[in-house]
Amino acid sequence: MSVQEGTAHRPWVDKVLTVNGWLIFAFLYLPILILVIYSFSDSKVVGIWGGFTWKWYNRMIHNPEMMGALWNSAKVAFISTIISTVLGTLAALALDRYRRWLGKGAFDVIMYLPVIIPEVTMGAMLLIWFTQILPVNLSLTTIILGHIAFSASFVTIVVRARLANLDDSLEEAAADLYANRWTTFRRITLPLIMPGVMGGALLALTLSLDDVVITEFVQGPGASLLPVYVFGLIRRQVTPEINAVSTLMLALSMMLVFISLAFQARSISKSKNKEA
């Protein structure tokens, strides 16, 4: 399947496109690269190179507030990812596998709203809900509840796409071969949508680890997450220590990209085998 054959351009068009392409990549990568470089600079001022040093990383590790925020982030991301993956997968199953049920039309709309609603609106409404209506104190729990409220929908989108590509007759075949509903789900449906579920989970994890806006609205006193804590630091003063923690966060993001790519590559190579 060669798709690219109809694209014979005149050479100059291709040249312009190529130059433009690499310039945009430079635009996307140079700022990050410079940020990483200055995290190793032995100078208090970011932007002035003062020789190589690990000291900012060292300082970061020995900053109890930062490490506390990191630990909080890990807890929130872990719990909200698990819950939103379960909720999102259930919703995807209900939407894709059941033709009609009470309130399905409304649910189909509600499910997608958290994806398109601006984060500030989401944060503001959760803040009002938690503090003015529900009798709860803002804490890590309210952050987790907020994160689930938006990331479950992303999981649903990813899993639903996977389900839509899954041949219905596989589940019918299992039923025909004496499997009951639960066994069919456990032995057939779940293993086959697993790449989608994992993709959704990674997305939920990334969203939770990246979130600043909603967390800032619904966090309790003294229990911040890493991005919000770093955000606060940047507002006060830019230091190379922020570059160090930024580099750490970038490394984490990058790791998640590669994990998700590995998942995709596996499911793609499987579907390629099928075509052959």
């Binding site: 996307l28 990050i32 940020l35 990246d210 991005p227 930024s246 990058m254 990209v257 998700s260």
Partner: peptide, 12 residues
């Protein structure tokens, strides 16, 4: 960059 932390990219 799509998946990278937004705050960090802005800070850069």
């Amino acid at each position: 960059p799509f998946w990278s932390n937004f705050l960090v990219r802005t800070y850069a």
